[in-house]
Design a protein around this nucleic acid. Structure first.
Lengths: 145, 145
DNA sequence: TTCCTTGCAAAAAGTTTGCAACTGC
DNA sequence: GCAGTTGCAAACTTTTTGCAAGGAA
């Protein structure tokens, strides 16, 4: 569990929401994902400990977490929504392999500089904390170019 | 119509497919889009000239065009699939405003250099011709920061 | 004529909503 | 106890598929 219990409880309560068993389990499942996870993967993970939880609860809860800023939702270049624990300090981007699904982080500073440049040139402010770049990872390319 | 009739007909026939009225109309609709267009927008545009065309034909045809390389399909950061005429010569990327939907191109050379750097450092080959970056455009930011 | 393609209808997949029972506070 | 939350079922939306009639080569 990589989230601090008190911190997320405070965030929920401060926004007028309750801390329930299901919400704790869903947040744990997002943490377990380590990086970006799909809603379906969260569902499977939670069901291992709570076999009666409903998909609609996952939908509602992930939307809630996103709206209070506990979790970030990104659309991958392959069309899936990916969820990840929000971390306001450590900005970074992801490379996602379209063949094997492996994820790789790249430091925020690299792309961040470029985004600043784009903003200066065109006024366009990039959604920097929401970026997943698709492609093929080194291992898959070695296997089949 | 920005596509050359003979060129796309040859591409289709070479791959063993037929050139039909519907396919021409759908390709025209993608061209009219000027930049990235959604499937729904293509449907609406085609229906103006061919009121009986079915949505399933749009789905099937856009997939066909994508598979033979006539059209490129990209997933926007907001989860919609966007279609655009393939142009093997002019590589470029798009900035897409999440508030007003405005599109803006940025030259391929800017990001291309960065992608080459990423590839050199990590072996990860970026899907460069499939990239749409989300954010807020200058006009919208001026209106409401 | 041959076989690919289309329109229509139905099915499948993914997501949202209404509501009674339940539970955090 | 009150109000927010959950599980279940049903509704909705989006996408795919089966098939008979129509059309390109």
């Amino acid at each position: 569990m990589s989230h601090h219990r008190t911190a997320y409880e405070d965030i929920l309560r401060a926004a007028g929401h309750r801390v329930t068993r299901q919400r704790i389990q869903i947040l744990d499942a997002v943490c377990e994902g380590e990086g970006h996870t799909t809603l379906a993967a969260v569902y499977v993970r939670v069901r291992r400990h709570a076999p009666t939880i409903d998909l609609s609860t996952i939908y509602r809860t992930l939307r809630l977490f996103t709206s209070v800023g506990l979790v970030i939702c990104t659309t991958s270049p392959f069309g899936e929504d990916l969820y990840e624990m929000a971390n306001p300090i450590d900005h970074h981007y992801h490379l996602l392999c379209r063949r094997c699904g492996a994820q790789q982080e790249i430091a925020g500073s690299v792309l961040g500089a470029l985004f600043a440049e784009i903003e200066a040139a065109s006024g366009f402010e990039v959604d920097g904390d929401h970026l997943v770049i698709g492609g093929v990872c080194g291992a898959c390319r070695a296997r089949q170019p």
